[in-house]
């Protein structure tokens, strides 16, 4: 089943094009890497799927719906920036997710929070950047969504945190769901991906499975990426 479908999707910021005629499908049960250098349109695509941006042209649907109230209930979204209000405590954030998302597993989230040694009464303001990112990821991965859209989940964190984040994703995602991970740190994520989509200057330049790339080209996705995006 197609969870995310784009058809000739285009978006420009003023006169600068961010996506030009992107068409793609993401099927449920797959972990897909949305790979490309900075400014290739990864975040724009994910924001369009969340309805935070409006397309200039073409269509984007999530589980057959235009982004909106209905699709938001099925999508679990990790933005590329810190968005949890700083004044909120962990308990308040848990309340917030439990109130609005029927598929939120509060017990699982609390267990992960405890495992990290974070006090529930602690406020976001009192946490380090890495801890904030972990808390945000825990909330996102504690939902049984149909589509996880993870924008740069491992950007700007230390290698240990990176491992923690990746294993949290693998051990928590709903196996009937699709996971889209956008990143430019390919070597770190490639082992957990089924498929990859290469974006360059707003266009899809390659769509393939990781094992097929390794089998037919005899190189890792990371090496292929360096080849395709050679400066």
């Amino acid at each position: 089943m197609n969870v995310l479908t784009c058809n000739a999707l285009s978006k420009a910021y003023g006169k600068t094009p961010a996506l030009s005629g992107v068409s793609l499908n993401v099927e449920s049960g797959h972990i897909v890497g949305l790979l490309g250098p900075n400014g290739s349109g990864k975040t724009t695509l994910i924001k369009l799927a969340n309805g935070l941006l409006t397309p200039d042209d073409g269509t984007i649907t999530v589980c057959g719906m235009r982004p909106g109230k209905g699709s938001h209930a099925l999508v679990s979204y990790l933005p590329e920036r810190a968005v949890l209000p700083e004044w909120m405590s962990v308990t308040q954030i848990l309340d917030f997710y439990a109130d609005f998302y029927a598929d939120f597993n509060r017990d699982a989230a609390q267990e992960m929070i405890r495992h990290l040694g974070i006090e529930e009464k602690q406020r976001i303001r009192q946490m380090s950047k890495g801890t904030r990112e972990k808390v945000q990821l825990i909330m996102v991965m504690s939902r049984q969504a149909k589509l996880y859209l993870l924008d740069e989940p491992i950007g700007g964190v230390d290698p240990a945190t990176r491992d923690y984040i990746l294993s949290t994703i693998i051990s928590n995602y709903n196996p009937e769901a699709a996971v889209v991970i956008s990143t430019h740190l390919i070597a770190d994520v490639e082992k957990i991906l089924d498929d990859v989509i290469f974006l360059n200057r707003g266009c899809v330049v390659l769509e393939n499975s990781v094992d097929e790339i390794r089998e037919t080209r005899g190189v890792s996705v990371d090496a292929l990426f360096r080849e395709v995006f050679k400066c």
């Binding site: 049960g29 693998i170 051990s171 089924d194």
Partner: peptide, 14 residues
């Protein structure tokens, strides 16, 4: 499968 995948750090489908 999921535990093995998590341990190896690979995709559960793989």
């Amino acid at each position: 499968v999921r535990d093995l995948a998590t341990e190896a750090g690979v995709n559960p489908n793989t």
